[in-house]
């Protein structure tokens, strides 16, 4: 028995999860932390080297923008972490924790982007990543505009960039491009050949501001619309609107406030997601809690997260 070699692994590396058991003996998937899906080219090269050395023949691009190293032997955990370069490329999480935030490309190069989702994703990742919820996973996503490629409302907290437009009639040259571009039909050309704006159909996409050749349309308000309580999986829920035009620099504090409510209200309810907790408590309770901290951005009323009829399995 004396020649049996004891495998040593730094268990601190496993604290936040991100090492996921595979089918094969001794093999794990290592999920990397890629907030907002942005990856510098030197990091990408480093990952490719580590994957080639320790992993299988391919990596997997996860649905939530991670690169996952496949077929990693658990005995190599320490070497993988070290060779990824601890400061440059960290491992992600799994389990009942705040996950790595997803984001679209944002506004630096994407012409549709209204807000800097990449910056928000990095901030949330830095401040809240890996926080244990005590109950279940907790997902956050940032969409830069109402086209919402990241599907923000399917997250526990989903942010969607929005702009409320205002018109300076004097600067308008009556070209009609705003009305032409307004897909929801919130802008029509009036009898004086100037745009007429109606509030209700507007989805706050800011297309009128972007297309306006003279700057007659400009931003009156800009920020995030926040939907809460979404999830996908076995019993999907679509999150509902709790805040509008939340300033970008309040995103972290907002999520922390939701988390605090979730931790407390889900106590004793077992492995339950935020959306189901809201259905149990009623959305008004969370709305009131958020209103104490963010009074100017919280909507007057909302509805509970909405169930999707998947037609397979009737919720008990």
């Amino acid at each position: 028995m004396s020649d049996v070699k004891q495998t040593k692994i730094d268990l601190n590396n496993l604290k936040a999860g991100g090492f996921i058991k595979e089918r094969g003996k001794d093999l794990f998937t290592v999920r990397l932390r890629v907030p907002g899906g942005r990856m510098s080219i030197p990091r990408l090269k480093r990952i490719a080297e580590v994957a080639e050395k320790f992993g299988g023949e391919f990596v997997h691009l996860s649905v939530r923008q991670s690169i996952e190293l496949i077929n990693i032997n658990f005995k190599d955990f320490d070497a993988v972490v070290e060779e990824l370069g601890e400061s440059a490329q960290k491992v992600a999480s799994c389990g009942a924790r705040v996950r790595v935030p997803v984001a679209c490309g944002g506004c630096e190069y994407n012409p549709n982007g209204l807000v800097d989702t990449q910056k928000s994703a990095l901030e949330v990742d830095e401040k809240l990543f890996g926080t244990p919820t005590g109950h279940h996973k907790f997902k956050v996503a940032f969409a830069g505009c109402p086209f919402d490629c990241p599907k923000s409302a399917t997250n526990d907290v989903g942010f969607q960039g929005a702009v409320y437009p205002k018109l300076d009639k004097g600067a308008c040259i009556s070209c009609g491009l705003c009305a032409k571009n307004c897909v929801p039909g919130a802008i029509v050309m009036g009898e004086d050949n100037k745009p007429l704006f109606s509030d209700d159909p507007c989805i706050w996409c800011g297309d009128c501001v972007k297309v306006c050749p003279t700057g007659a349309w400009s931003e009156a308000r800009r920020g995030y619309n926040v939907r809460i309580g979404g999830k996908w999986g076995r019993n999907p829920l679509v999150g509902t609107l709790f805040a509008t035009f939340l300033p970008e620099d309040k995103a972290v504090a907002f999520i922390a406030t939701v988390l605090e409510w979730y931790k407390q209200k889900a106590e004793g309810l077992g492995r339950i997601r935020l959306g189901d907790t809201i259905i149990k408590e009623g959305p008004q309770v969370l709305l009131d809690h958020l209103r104490t901290r963010f009074p100017e951005y919280i909507v007057a009323e909302t509805i509970e997260p909405q169930r999707i009829a998947t037609q397979v399995g009737i919720p008990a």
Binding site: L177, K180, V211, P213
Partner: peptide, 21 residues
């Protein structure tokens, strides 16, 4: 075309003087 092209030309730094159907 009329939704995209004027907007892209504006972003390139050109000035839209008028648009008529």
């Amino acid at each position: 075309p009329v939704k995209n092209v004027p907007r892209s030309l504006k972003a390139d730094g050109h000035k839209i003087v008028a648009l008529k159907q």
